[in-house]
Simulated scan of single mutants.
Amino acid sequence: MAAISRQELELPGWPQFGDEERGALIRALDQGQWWRIGGSEVDEFEREFAAYHHAPHALAVTNGTHALELALQVMGVGPGDEVVVPAFTFISSSQAVQRLGGVAVPVDVDPDTYCLDPAAARAAVTARTKAIMPVHMAGVVCDMDELDKLAADTGAPILQDAAHAHGAEWRGRRVGELGSPAAFSFQNGKLMTAGEGGAVTFPDAGQYETAFVRHSCGRPRTDRSYLHQTSGSNFRMGEFSAAVLRVQLARLDGQIATREQRWPLLAGLLADVPGVVPQGSDARCTRNPHYMAMFRIPGITEERRNELVDALIAGGLPAFAAFRAVYRTPAFWESAAPQESAEDIARRCPVSEELTRDCVWLHHRTLLADEEQIHLVARIVAETVAAVGSGV
């Protein structure tokens, strides 16, 4: 088979932007008020984002990590409280807990969807559990039926980490209408972006108002005497970011539609590659925005997987090694660590251990390419796995 030149592969760039974003920035500039208290862009973005996700309330913040931290604080998480998190996730899921002095309790994930395993979460709940944090991995919504039952049975509420799930649906319902807070990220690689940024949707007006005060240094909206009511920090989003995000939100539906069309094609092609297993889904996840195109190569070593990723990048693909299990990082053990070793956790997280070694993902801009390009992507993966992954 002839080698593919990088010139043949023409994937869309990211972020995608145009005159609409430029116009929005000028609009924000011309206000003459560039922070949320005096301007209107953040307020309008919050209304539009909440409506899009069918949520009663949305609060825009500085980034997705702060969104998680703020939501956990509003839910009452503090020193010594336990929060169940997936072992396989980006480190912000656990660090947001630990920044509040809470103990992140990693549990295993489903081998097909890579989402939090409800049975493993149930086994990890104790009298000290203050919250359960499912991560909608790569846009696949977690089993919210079982997790909602778990929350009802144990009294430990759900906080959805929806950093990958803008526009996702579970049984036809958007993430914002599932009855629990959801935290989103607008970091540069996310499904909609202003470089950085985040948001939390809330089902409850009281939680939203508490979050607003805490995200503004504990200061109420109308305060003029610096009478700070509660502890907090400055997590306020600026007007320029919100202006860009309003346009990015308007682009989102069309991009999701394209990715939903392209993923079945790419997944089918990847499934035909010897040794490659694409991420699965759940039929109850009725809309998947596909933050990543993820696949596994079971049996490969971590070193060989990393070599494979390097080779894919050399072939022109935006490829990444998947997340390392959070307990396999030095950062996890720096503060508020659980009273067990990494090996103890690993014994109850075999799937996360495997994903740490054998999982690869391609950036979602891959799925915005046309069908011819999708075939080229699969061909590059096949040839690279055959060459680099021959030691599997």
Rank of each mutant, 00 (worst) to 15 (best):
G206K: 12
A336D: 13
R47D: 04
F240M: 13
S233N: 09
A342E: 11
V175N: 00
V105K: 06
L312H: 00
C142F: 03
R287N: 06
Y327H: 08
D272Q: 10
L265V: 14
A96Q: 08
L308E: 09
R357W: 13
D145E: 07
E20N: 05
G299L: 00
S5L: 13
W14F: 14
L362T: 07
L252I: 09
G391R: 09
A51I: 02
A199I: 02
P289V: 04
G198S: 10
Q207F: 06
A24C: 15
S93Q: 08
T286D: 15
A67R: 00
R224P: 01
D110I: 04
Q187S: 12
G299P: 01
E209C: 06
F323Y: 13
E69G: 05
A337S: 14
A183C: 14
M237T: 03
P157K: 01
R219G: 01
P157H: 04
P134M: 05
A121D: 06
P86Q: 05
A325K: 11
R365I: 00
E10L: 14
R27A: 06
V244F: 03
A120K: 06
F17W: 14
E10G: 11
A123V: 08
E354V: 15
C285V: 10
E48K: 08
V273T: 02
R305W: 12
R219Q: 07
T329P: 07
A283V: 12
E343P: 02
R304Q: 14
S216V: 04
W361N: 09
N188G: 12
A257V: 14
K190Y: 13
T301N: 07
Y291W: 10
G179L: 09
M75V: 08
V381M: 08
H136R: 06
R219W: 02
G13E: 15
A199L: 02
G39R: 07
V200L: 01
I374Y: 10
A242M: 13
L265P: 07
I91E: 00
G238S: 03
G23E: 07
L191G: 01
A138M: 01
E169R: 11
T258R: 15
A311P: 01
T329E: 12
T201S: 01
K149W: 09
V381E: 04
G167M: 05
A182K: 09
G80L: 12
R251I: 06
H364W: 11
L308P: 06
D117W: 14
M294S: 10
R99N: 10
I91G: 01
G64Q: 00
S231I: 12
S335Q: 15
Y52T: 04
H164E: 09
G254T: 15
H166M: 03
S94A: 15
G280K: 09
A60E: 04
G389W: 07
A127T: 11
T129G: 00
G13M: 14
R22S: 14
L227G: 09
R347S: 00
A138P: 02
A163E: 00
L269Y: 07
T65A: 05
T129L: 04
D43I: 07
G78A: 15
P134H: 04
F90P: 02
F90S: 08
E44M: 03
S341N: 06
G80R: 11
E10F: 11
R379K: 13
D204S: 05
G38L: 07
Y208W: 15
A124M: 09
R171Q: 14
T129M: 05
A382C: 08
A163K: 03
R304L: 10
